[in-house]
Amino acid sequence: MLTLSKISQSFYRGTVNEKHALRKVSIEIAEGEFVTVIGSNGAGKSTLLNVVAGKLHPDSGTVTIEGHDVTRLSDHDRASMIGRVFQDPRAGTAPELTIEENLAIAYTRGKARGLRRGVTKHRRDLFASELATLEQGLESRLKTRVATLSGGQRQALSLLMATFSQPKILLLDEHTAALDPQRAALVVRLTRELVERHRPTTLMVTHNMEQALELGDRLIMMHDGEIVVDVSGERKARATVADLLSAFEEVRGAELSDRTLLG
């Protein structure tokens, strides 16, 4: 269970460039729920994710994970509960380390890291069987440096690393945006499989409306720092890209008429 209550976050406060990225955003996400997040440029989607991850500390409001208030915890202190996959395929892995060493780092998420060997026989077997589920042949390349993998393979590995260590929460930040359509489709399929298998509470930001409809069981649309659309269940399953576009137009239209009235 992930609860955000009345989160406000602004950038460049007190200057002419002041930007309210989030305005008193509240949302409750049930355990195991998979939420896709869409919204226009600067709507606050990534800010929302970064507030959950602890990369940003909000001006006001609280973040609660399974009843624990984590608002003031730093990103690495929360990382025992949170798995992340970034837009940049290079961001989720250490390039000069081998595949198995990267997995060892993911495996020790939330555990004390001491002077035990990072890659043991037991762990290597586990890593190989996990990698096999990706169907990328990576299980036979455990000692390969990650820098030599393609973007799609690195993103698939990042996804595995973020999920197999069983975080309570999974944050996906436009993790297919930097890939070509074929690789993106692969990563989408793996996302579905891995989320189904490990059942983390998932927040996925995407720019691709079809992807937002295809994946997950709840969809929210953000605009100007607020959640303006929140659909789930049957309604989400039936929604189409056209529905989303007209909902978006409606929000923008309302904003325009407000401005006209004020003007």
Binding site: A53, D75, H76, A79, I82, A94, E96, I105, T108
Partner: peptide, 12 residues
């Protein structure tokens, strides 16, 4: 090598 990655796996 990658501070973003390290922190995301709980490394201080």
């Amino acid at each position: 090598e990658n501070e973003v990655m390290a922190r995301s796996f709980g490394i201080s």
